[in-house]
Design a protein around this nucleic acid. Structure first.
Lengths: 192, 192
DNA sequence: CGTAGATATCTGATTACTCACTCATTTATA
DNA sequence: TATAAATGAGTGAGTAATCAGATATCTACG
């Protein structure tokens, strides 16, 4: 290899893409604006990502990985189910509130229909540990027996996202929303 | 007025827009494709909606109104809080499942940043009765006192949307998801 | 009832513009 | 010195919106 690709440039492009996508929307954002903000020439973007679609898929994987890192670092494997879920909840909500652009882009990506099967698969891979926690919980009869496993994780995501929306709207109430959200979740899924 | 605009044509355009937006995405959808599917000339679209942006905002209001109709028709004003919320839940979930394109477009619109303040206001106006129900419930101490009112409605929306996603994924489990979703919601917000 | 005129809609070719991507040339690194 | 990356003007494919001419519908009047 005569001249290697630069990891820095790749990251600069992904960073710029996050900003521009968040600001202008996935399809309305011109690649020229992304290369400009990344301080590379228009053509350079295409040596790192063959097409805009490629860039979008790569960005999705990148952000998902970041999120998984944030959620799974310090995961209390040995603690109670409630504690483990609470950890996931807090890490998720805190990440979302502190990374609004990434969260926004992720939301756009998930409804865009531009993600390949492979990207979607790759994106959900880092979250297996959470799935295991929930399986555990069901086997231990801590949760209502009549709830399918996929509901438990889906509802956590839904309520956490809703809590983030509220926190962004009224940051002063952050603690109340974060705690209250988890209370609703836990009371909703746990056995009496 | 020499020649009146036709309500039929307007509706045909809005209908076509729903289909095309759902299929191709808000910004990727060409107005020419919309006029084609509506069986009017390219120019005609612009006598009914000055700009594409106008069309988008009008469509948002239209769909929101439909949804409000579906949710509030047959609303059991005199029944218990639980029954009233259950009515709203079922109507919402059923509408979403039977109107997947409208639901998809609505989701796109809400994160698009293309909606005017007026449209957003107009869109939420028809849902006041639901807000009143929740206010009632809080005053009657049926719900946990520590939950802010905006959380109650936000979480209903979030859990209902999540339930719809699951139903679309596995239609055979529709009843289980719809009932289970509401159970989680009610157990989450109600006093013990 | 029928006709004329006024006015607005309808049409689709055209316009002005934007964008993803290419490519010939220059530059940096193994 | 060989090779790949970097550059940015250029290309072709689209796109929202316009506009001049054709057409439909309304009102007024005989």
């Amino acid at each position: 290899m005569a001249r290697p690709k630069s990891e820095d440039k790749r990251n600069a492009i992904l960073d710029a893409a996050t900003r521009v996508f968040a600001e202008r929307g996935l399809t309305a954002a011109p690649t020229s604006e992304i290369s400009k903000q990344a301080r590379v020439a228009d053509g350079t973007l295409f040596t790192y990502f063959k097409t805009k679609d490629d860039l979008i898929n790569a960005l999705y994987r990148e952000i998902k990985l970041e999120l998984a890192d944030a959620m799974m670092s310090g995961f209390p494997r040995k603690k109670s189910v409630r504690t483990r879920l609470r950890h996931v909840w807090d890490a998720y909500v805190n990440w979302g509130v502190t990374h609004p652009k990434q969260r926004n882009v992720l939301a756009q990506l998930q409804v865009s229909g531009m993600l390949s099967k492979e990207s979607i698969e790759a994106g959900s891979a880092p979250f297996v540990e959470m799935q295991n926690t929930i399986r555990d919980a069901i086997e231990q009869h801590i949760l209502r027996v009549d709830l399918p496993i996929e509901m438990i994780s889906k509802m956590l995501g839904a309520l956490a996202e809703a809590s983030m929306d509220l926190i962004v709207l009224k940051p002063a109430m952050a603690k109340k929303y974060r705690d209250g959200g988890f209370e609703i979740y836990w009371a909703g899924i746990a056995r009496k």
